[in-house]
Design a protein around this nucleic acid. Structure first.
Length: 369
DNA sequence: GTATGCTTTCGGC
DNA sequence: TTACGGCCGAAAGCATAC
């Protein structure tokens, strides 16, 4: 059986790097790409920080005012996030990458798995050359750096690209997989969250190497047969998840920060009305229906709460979304103790709609005022 | 007892 | 001292099915 050649590519501190390329004079200074909620002049958070900002203790998710305070002597550059711009650049890059690999599976705006098994015939020296070619192509066309990891499985490739950040290339040959994984904490394995990691710690398994030597029956008694078998395989870099082209999103959602805190479902829904239209349009443009609708509420204490409803058969029409969303927000509002600060809706359980509206049938005049 | 599906929450970027 | 987005998929918790 030929060894697989799986890669993971990650664009370095993507949004902030795009801004550096657009305006090279800011390089060297801390750069923050921020989301402003609109509630007050400064309210919002950091979405992406460049490495200079990270050295100074500022990273994604941090409130803008906190970040500014930390960087007040470091001449920070604060930039408003422009999602469409990054989306366009990402798409151009992914199209180029697609031409140079056998299979591309995009997993985010700035990252993707790829497969080179067929074109390299399992030759890792060839894979290294192709990965260098990818990095060169992205640098030449967009002036952006990326990190690439290559290994025998998705999990190995992802861990390799993580440890190559920023700007590196790490090839983990199949026979070096054990050495590479052995010291890595178990919670880095796909499928192992805090709960599973905690249960593993009880049997003195804290690293992937220790997991690979764990007793199978011991694992099975705690996690069941199927999950245990997966854990053992994954610990040896033998997780068999395939790189799949043309993967479609499993859910769409929209969130807004309310103009003022409220627990009125009607008020929440009203301020979410554009978001509901957006979700409906995305469904329509992608030819999808959904089975599950969720109402999401972030309260004044920033705690997160949801209520969902699953339909027997797939739904796509806007009035069904609005009616059910009102029901869900009414229930949500009644079940929480504080006002909403932010609200959102999410559709999941997506399926292809029978009578789908194709992109080619969509004309601006049909949707315009 | 184990697998599966749905709901809710978590966590990364 | 506090401060605080908008997405996504993963993980966990629970009920039910096999």
């Amino acid at each position: 059986m030929m060894e697989r050649v799986v890669g993971h590519l990650d664009l370095d501190y993507f949004y902030a790097q795009v801004e550096e390329v657009e305006n090279p004079s800011i390089k060297g200074r801390p750069v923050l790409v921020c989301v402003f909620s609109g509630r007050t002049e400064e309210s919002g958070v950091v979405s992406t920080a460049n490495y200079r900002a990270r050295e100074l203790g500022v990273g994604s998710g941090m409130p803008i005012v906190v970040a500014k305070k930390k960087l007040q002597k470091a001449e920070p550059v604060i930039i408003k996030m422009e999602h469409e711009k990054y989306e366009m650049i990402s798409e151009r890059i992914m199209r180029r990458v697609e031409e140079r690999v056998d299979i591309l599976e995009q997993t985010g705006i700035d990252e993707a798995f790829f497969d080179l098994t067929a074109s390299t015939g399992g030759d890792y020296d060839d894979a290294r050359k192709k990965a260098e070619g990818l990095k060169d192509a992205i640098l030449a066309s967009e002036h952006l750096t990326c990190s690439i990891g290559i290994g025998r499985s998705k999990a190995v490739a992802k861990l390799a690209s993580d440890s190559a950040k920023p700007g590196g290339l790490l090839i983990v040959r199949p026979d070096a997989t054990g050495t590479f994984l052995d010291e890595t904490p178990v919670n880095k394995l796909y499928g192992v969250g805090p709960k599973t990691a905690g249960a593993l710690k009880e049997i003195d398994v804290e690293t992937i190497g220790q997991l690979s030597h764990a007793n199978e029956d011991d694992l099975a008694s705690r996690f069941g047969k199927k999950f245990s078998a997966y854990l053992l395989a994954a610990s040896r870099g033998l997780d068999d998840a395939l790189v799949l082209a043309g993967l479609e999103p499993a859910q769409f959602s929209r969130m807004v920060t309310l103009k003022r805190d409220t627990r009125s479902p009607e008020e929440a829904l009203e301020q979410l009305s554009q978001g509901i239209l957006d979700v409906q349009q995305r469904l329509s443009l992608s030819g999808k229906s959904f089975r599950t609708l969720s109402a999401i509420g972030i309260l004044t204490d920033l705690s997160s709460h949801t209520k969902s409803k699953t339909f027997e058969t797939p739904v796509a029409d806007i009035s069904a979304i609005r009616d059910s969303a009102l029901d869900l927000f009414t229930g949500l509002s009644a079940s929480v103790q504080k006002d909403f600060r932010r609200v959102g809706i999410r559709v999941s359980g997506l399926t292809k709609t029978e009578n789908q509206l194709h992109l080619s049938e969509f004309t601006p005049s049909a949707a315009g005022p």
